[in-house]
């Protein structure tokens, strides 16, 4: 196996790690949080019932922030493994 291949293996290994990390966060804010919406609604968050807030805004903010962070992280992985473009 050439060093190019091991670099690619390393890159894919780290890419998969990032994928699992981000899909876990995604899973929590897509499903787990809303599964407990009626319990969360007992808590008030700046006037909103928390379960309603998470569906109307909270999860959405998490997704947006998460994606910009993911982009940074993946670009770093690509660079460090020498497979970034240019």
């Amino acid at each position: 196996m050439s060093s190019g291949d091991s670099q690619k293996d390393n890159h894919w290994h780290r890419t998969k790690g990032l994928m699992i990390l981000h899909l876990s966060i995604w899973f929590i804010f897509s499903f787990v949080v809303h599964w407990f919406a009626s319990n969360l609604n007992q808590i008030t968050f700046f006037g909103w019932p928390l379960g309603f807030y998470m569906a109307a805004q909270g999860s959405l903010i998490v997704f947006v922030v998460q994606l910009f962070i993911f982009v940074k992280q993946q670009e770093k992985v690509d660079r460090e493994c020498g497979v970034a473009e240019d």
């Binding site: 994928m19 995604w26 897509s30 109307a56 999860s59 959405l60 997704f63 993911f70």
Partner: peptide, 23 residues
């Protein structure tokens, strides 16, 4: 509240697009 499933679904789908597919 039940209708907010569309709001969550139509935004969170982009996490899948970015992580699994588009690049």
């Amino acid at each position: 509240h039940p209708y907010l499933a569309f709001v969550v679904g139509w935004t969170g789908g982009y996490v899948l697009v970015a992580v699994l597919m588009a690049p």
